[in-house]
Design a protein around this nucleic acid. Sequence first.
DNA 1: TGTTAGCACTCAACAAAAGAGAGTGCTAAC
DNA 2: GTTAGCACTCTCTTTTGTTGAGTGCTAACA
Lengths: 333, 333
Amino acid sequence: MKILQAIIRNYLETGEPVGSRTISKYTDLNLSSATIRNEMSDLEEMGLIKQPHTSAGRIPTDAGYRIYVDHMMDDSRREVEEMKNLLVDKEERLENLLQQVAKLLADGTQYASMISAPTVQGNKIKFIQLSQVDPENILAVIVLEKNLVRNSLIPVKEELTQEALLMLNMLLNTSLNGVPVEQINLGLIAAIKKKAGVYEELVGDVIDAAAEAIKPDDDLKIYTSGATNIFRYPELADHQKAREILLEIEEKGALGSIVQERLAGEETGIQVYIGTESQQESMKDLSVVTTTYDLGDGMKGTVGIIGPKRMDYDKVVGILKDIAHNLDDLYKT
Amino acid sequence: MKILQAIIRNYLETGEPVGSRTISKYTDLNLSSATIRNEMSDLEEMGLIKQPHTSAGRIPTDAGYRIYVDHMMDDSRREVEEMKNLLVDKEERLENLLQQVAKLLADGTQYASMISAPTVQGNKIKFIQLSQVDPENILAVIVLEKNLVRNSLIPVKEELTQEALLMLNMLLNTSLNGVPVEQINLGLIAAIKKKAGVYEELVGDVIDAAAEAIKPDDDLKIYTSGATNIFRYPELADHQKAREILLEIEEKGALGSIVQERLAGEETGIQVYIGTESQQESMKDLSVVTTTYDLGDGMKGTVGIIGPKRMDYDKVVGILKDIAHNLDDLYKT
DNA sequence: TGTTAGCACTCAACAAAAGAGAGTGCTAAC
DNA sequence: GTTAGCACTCTCTTTTGTTGAGTGCTAACA
């Protein structure tokens, strides 16, 4: 239905309810406003558009947006050029990179953005080393494939001898090298402990620390940017709403669920949540567009845009694809 | 002047301009409204209070708040009990701790809060170790006093021999052990390089990496929380203002300057910036109360509360002192 | 001299009333 | 199937009063 498309297009731009007159005038359909009105009636009956009040124009419903996103989006309209060369520098620290990407997205789209730290799934241990840092502490350094480095300080009762350290290092490396993080289980731990002899306890500590260091860190860390952009959209800028939305973005609760949902699922393309589709009460006036990026070797994360329901889906989808693509390439040099 | 105190107290509570009648009624001064009016005239002339418009009550000016903060605050009124046992758990990762503290502050005060990561000033190197992680990379682990661990991956052209590594480790440790980070200068580097012989280049890389790893990381990292609390205060919740303030908090520009100012100065107590006193246009409707915390060995940071000018200074100062105290103790076990 | 009562005046805030304008649904004609 | 015309609805804006809090000033009082 060309008319639905026209209505949504117009509403995306202005944010105002659009009336029959406007459509009749500013499209090349060459239909009078009366005809449009009839059609509108039908569309309303189908639940694709609605009137905020009698004698106002129509605005799209969530279902209406859905149709638009699924069938009517014009991929050629993508205005990605501006961001094409965004040059995600290979930043020293992942954290900064993510924050930078979030900012980039927010600035580029004028919406709010989020990006989750990649989860380290199926990452393998590549190198372990214990060193006596001072008489009371041993430093365990664990390097994973993809050169992720973690370290942990382990207090010890007494200083270890040079030989003991050497022995333990050897032991740990031979037993854990190439083992995926998830596969470190009690059985394996027990086996290694046994071989450690007197240092059983210490080895237990080291493995615990390793597990600890790897898991909960980036667990569900989400970086956001451009939250204040919501003030650009009058329909969201109202006190009550703005407050709720900002709180949501700050606390990241709803975003967390979305990210988890994304990571759990197998789907890897663009996903669009319109209004209540995200199951989150606080998101009812927002749309969230997400996609998955993949740093390789199971390091996946989610990146997305949060904006008003009347967001420029074409543009956002384009930009997200771009970013995800860039991130995908980043570590595959 | 008891009257000024009464006016400010009242205004802090209500946020509404306070009239002569109110003061006359709800204080134990036993003065009629007429008298109060006369006094108010004087206070206005002195620039301590002002009227938003004729026929409205008076509100304090920045100067008025200043007087209050400097001379009239009632320390006994502190309502810190609620937070007394806040139990800042010794979190694994500093970052989480700081974020947690920020949230605690925001929740406890109902204002926005900020905390800067501690700057590592005068921290000394305690331990350095190079290890061959894989054929192309060497991992440099640097441990500082206070057990701050940094690491950096250095690409190398060819694998080093066991002996070479041992030699370099020995060299680096003997030359850099106990050296404050700031004192690593070109002269020192040259001297070490010379001793490194064939590995001159590699050593240079390591030291560069070390310097790199230590400095810019936590440099001016600021964690904030509770930004949305500003919506609680009608005088800030207006679109335009709220947006500016939230943007400021998100971007952290102004906060950064304040933190730097604090760290540069020698003062270590509570500091209150009222309105324009912070030199930041965007802060003109806000007050910022900060204090410095000290994790020991020169690891200092700034923690503060950002709120409306009519914030409950007594309470905020109390809580901040408490938090700073807790943080001070944290690492001094 | 400091305090108080009284009064006229000002001005924001609220509410009711009056238009204006946009948009609709429906009917009748093309 | 499309269009013109018209009465009707409802929001939004503007206007006009009205109210009430609060002031400044003057004159009386202790």
